[in-house]
């Protein structure tokens, strides 16, 4: 796709966010076009999850300035479920365990809620099972996980695979992956990355949040943004990834006159 054909999917303008009266994001600007993969990197505590959560509509964050346009609409006005139905998908840094709710029941409810919104017929139990089994095979998710409670007792890797399985089922337009690589061994990382790469295409975009370089060996981003202390301190293309790999974040922070030890360690 040439630059002139670029279609904006998400436009974040001067976004300021507070949590419990504390300023966390301080003027974020970011445009994500269809077909692009953006990586957001930065030390722990720099505000990466805050950004991801605000985009997905989690409560507890107050936007004090700025706006977010998604498909040309005011995203911040939408309920979390509306955002999901409109194609926003957040892969959680910490997927939530929900005792008593069967995973397969949950997955079917989610898929049908989204299908209904898109004007597609809801899937019955048989059709859904066929679909989910196909996706599970791709994601190398064991079938017995379908019949357990959502994420309950899943290992770290199983939880992340379950997130990607949900993404594959929901076919989002904008996938926001918050530390999808954390806690994964190398095999799981490869599987998860494969699952993500399989979904790359001109009809959707990705925002990948990570503080490790290694994910970028498996999923090559188009753009990289470094977030520190709630600000994007540097944006660049793939070349920046290589530079970061060699030199770390310290030099960037120093250039900006920030404490090179990074934001609050956590």
């Amino acid at each position: 796709m040439s630059a002139s054909e670029k279609q904006p999917l998400l436009i974040i303008e001067d976004l300021w966010v507070e949590v419990e009266g504390k300023s966390i994001l301080k003027g974020i600007d970011l445009t994500v076009n269809y077909g692009e993969v953006h990586a957001i990197m930065g030390p722990n505590g720099s505000g990466k999850s805050t950004l991801a959560n605000v985009l997905a509509g989690r409560e507890g964050y107050s936007v004090t300035r700025g706006r977010v346009l998604y498909k040309g609409q005011d995203l911040l006005e939408m309920e979390p479920e509306e955002r999901a139905r409109e194609g926003i998908f957040l892969a959680f840094q910490y997927p939530v365990e929900i005792p008593g709710v069967n995973n397969v029941y949950f997955l079917k409810a989610a898929v049908n809620a989204v299908r209904k919104h898109r004007g597609l017929p809801e899937l019955d139990a048989m059709d859904f099972l066929e679909l989910v089994k196909e996706k599970m095979a791709q994601m190398k998710v064991r079938e017995e996980m379908l019949y357990r409670a959502v994420n309950e007792g899943f290992s770290g890797g199983e939880k992340k695979r379950n997130e990607i399985l949900q993404m594959a089922l929901l076919e989002p337009t904008l996938a926001i992956l918050d530390e999808i690589d954390s806690g994964l061994d190398i095999d799981a990382l490869r599987d998860v990355a494969e699952g993500i790469n399989a979904l790359r295409g001109p009809e959707r975009a990705f925002i990948m949040v990570t503080h490790y370089q290694r994910l970028l060996h498996y999923i090559e981003p188009d753009y990289i943004h470094v977030l520190a202390y709630g600000e994007v301190i540097r944006s660049g293309d793939r070349a920046l990834a290589h530079e970061l790999e060699e030199r770390g974040y310290g030099w960037l922070l120093e250039e900006r006159g920030l404490d090179a030890s990074g934001a609050e360690a956590s």
Partner: peptide
């Protein structure tokens, strides 16, 4: 929030968690 973030309406999500 997890359920809503997957497109499930708030009332349905509440019912699901209550039944659970």
């Amino acid at each position: 929030f997890y359920l809503r973030a997957r497109g499930i309406a708030e009332a349905d999500a509440r019912a699901l968690l209550t039944r659970a």
